[in-house]
Amino acid sequence: MNLTPASPLAANPASPALSPGAQVLAACRAEGRAALVGYLPVGFPSVEVSIEAMVAMVRAGADIIEVGIPYSDPLMDGPLIQRATEAALEGGSRVDDVFTAVRAIADAGAAAYVMTYWNLVLKRGVARFAADLAAAGGSGLITPDLIPDEAGEWLAASDAHGLDRVFLVAPSSTPERLTVATGACRGFVYAASTMGVTGTRETVGSAAQDVVRRTREVTDVPVCVGLGVSTRAQAADVAGFADGVIVGSALVRALGEGGIPAMEALTRELAAGVREGRP
């Protein structure tokens, strides 16, 4: 993919070159569809199988892979992902493994963002983490417990290594907070569809559409929606108003219950869903 200087992303002076992830989102925008972002944690059910699953997810139609690092205190995750990441840690999954996964995804031709709780980055050293992620071909970091106000070191490191930084916005975000959060985002903005933690939900409520609308009022950065999406119909619904649809728990459950074939089948369904969102 080539750079698209006309893209609003390219206007960001800190981002002379678009990350692989930003290029994917721009291409999806040009196609008039939302991107499918699929989450899996490294190390579940084992490091090898998780990486194989991520590559399979690319084959099955995911545009971007969100690679989770298991953490001992995942306060934004619901029971399903908690159980998977606890199992991954018990199985010996280490932070180093995430870079192997990112490299495999990049080699498979997809964009990889790493989703991590902040202490794991701090412990490695922010600059070292950024260098390792860039070297592995990663696009950036999604940081559920880091707000831009606390992110000075990461803002500098991500600029130095050309990485995207994805902060979250939520239905509770005030206009002031939306401006702060999106002002620091590069790549995309992660909009939480609901007030709560990860997990599948029967419906993705109107709060999601509202937070996307309010986010778009303050930024041109693509907005991807996460939390609660598990089915093709929900993916299509969210794809109608967002730049990307993020699916986590449902894919983790499919992988846990039916292995890679089940996870691939769900990915194909979701990939079809994001293409049905806009008539």
Binding site: D145, D149, E150, S172, S173, R177, A192
Partner: peptide, 11 residues
């Protein structure tokens, strides 16, 4: 500091 999800910042 405040190392928490953005959703909690308004509260």
């Amino acid at each position: 500091g405040r190392y928490v999800p953005e959703a909690l910042i308004p509260a």
